[in-house]
Write a protein that binds this DNA or RNA. Structure first.
Length: 327
DNA sequence: CATGTATCGTTACATTCCTT
DNA sequence: AAGGAATGTAACGATACATG
């Protein structure tokens, strides 16, 4: 979001040194710098990555520069690490291989990078205001967000407002008062989202942003293969309104097919499967299965299979393996 | 009343087919 | 080949209806 979102931007320079004989040369250099620069802080290479933010916020507290008591909450601080002065600062999370691994030491994460002669790192701390969320501000922020994201994109990002609500709010047609609990959840979500948003979010292929008021770039369309469609249809035949969990599982199953494993294929996620089920229900309603079955026919007649055979080939049970036609 | 969900019609994208 | 038209369908936003 805008720069005004941050009440303060604090930069710290971090010096890392390895205890022992290898730090002699660096030590000399560092002391020289630290004389000029009060904000230079020494850090042990064995320190945890996760403790960085807390370490640097502590002096702010002591100086009384941070009035908000909750400022140490993770959701209020965006931490970036700039490994080299000419390198781009990256969010703390991007240095962590997997979730739950934020307790890795700096040495583990950065390795030899810490010990070259000019080793110095910059930690950027972006502190955020706690917005005083009201029904009105929440609606305003929603409208603002919808200038950059589509309703469905926000829904996909776990926005607490459903796509329907977002649509109504954007058109000033949401006549109910948004509950305090909902506003609180939205505030939390919004802060978290703004904090985790990468600097170059505009280049994010998976989450393209709107380009202007009228023409919007949709998410990249996924194309289901001939191998995958029978799987989806069999599942649909068994249950046309599957649960979220089932659809997530189905997406995982689809990602295991040879087609998906091929390098460069887009991964199937829950939303793709959900959309497919929505569209398939629509197809079934429209043509009373006609549309869907015509699709079967055209698809498989070209492959030399009879329609009936193919349709019968799709087992009632989801557990039965479906053999894909050979092309 | 506040919110979630299903459905509908539309849009935009991927692919195929046809013409040059 | 190139590229434009046609086709099929995933993704989308609006809205009606359901839920508690």
């Amino acid at each position: 979001m805008e720069e005004s979102e941050y009440c303060e931007k604090v930069r710290f320079r971090v010096v890392l040194h390895r205890p022992g004989n290898s730090s002699v040369e660096q030590g000399a250099k560092f002391s020289e710098i630290s004389e000029q620069d009060q904000s230079f802080v020494y850090i042990e290479s064995s320190s945890n990555l996760s403790s960085l933010a807390a370490k640097f916020l502590q002096p702010l507290y002591e100086q009384g520069r941070v009035e908000d008591k909750d400022i140490l909450k993770a959701s209020n601080v965006k931490v970036f690490i700039q490994v080299r002065p000419t390198w781009k600062p990256l969010p703390l999370s991007s240095f962590v291989y997997k979730q739950n691994q934020s307790d890795l030491s700096l040495e583990t994460v950065f390795g030899p990078l810490l010990y070259v002669n000019d080793s110095e790192m910059v930690v950027h701390l972006h502190l955020c205001n706690e917005k005083n969320w009201t029904d009105e501000t929440a609606r305003d922020v929603v409208k603002q967000l919808l200038q950059s994201y589509s309703q469905t994109q926000l829904e996909r990002l776990n926005c607490p407002f459903s796509q329907g609500m977002l649509s109504q709010i954007s058109r000033d047609q949401y006549y109910c008062k948004v509950s305090a609990e909902k506003i609180r959840l939205f505030g939390q979500w919004y802060n978290a989202m703004m904090l985790s948003k990468p600097e170059d979010a505009d280049d994010n292929e998976d989450m393209p942003l709107k380009r202007g008021s009228y023409v919007m770039q949709r998410s990249k369309k996924i194309v289901f293969s001939k191998e995958e469609l029978p799987l989806l249809r069999a599942s649909f035949k068994a249950l046309s309104h599957p649960s979220t969990q089932r659809m997530t599982e189905l997406a995982e199953e689809l990602n295991k097919t040879e087609f998906r494993k091929t390098h460069g294929r887009k991964k199937v996620d829950f939303c793709h499967v959900n959309n497919w089920f929505k569209n398939e229900r629509s197809r079934v309603r429209k043509g009373n299965h006609e549309f869907s079955q015509v699709a079967y026919r055209t698809e498989y007649s070209m492959l030399g299979s009879g329609t009936e055979g193919v349709l019968l080939g799709i087992k009632e049970s989801e557990d039965n393996e479906i053999t894909s036609p050979v092309s």
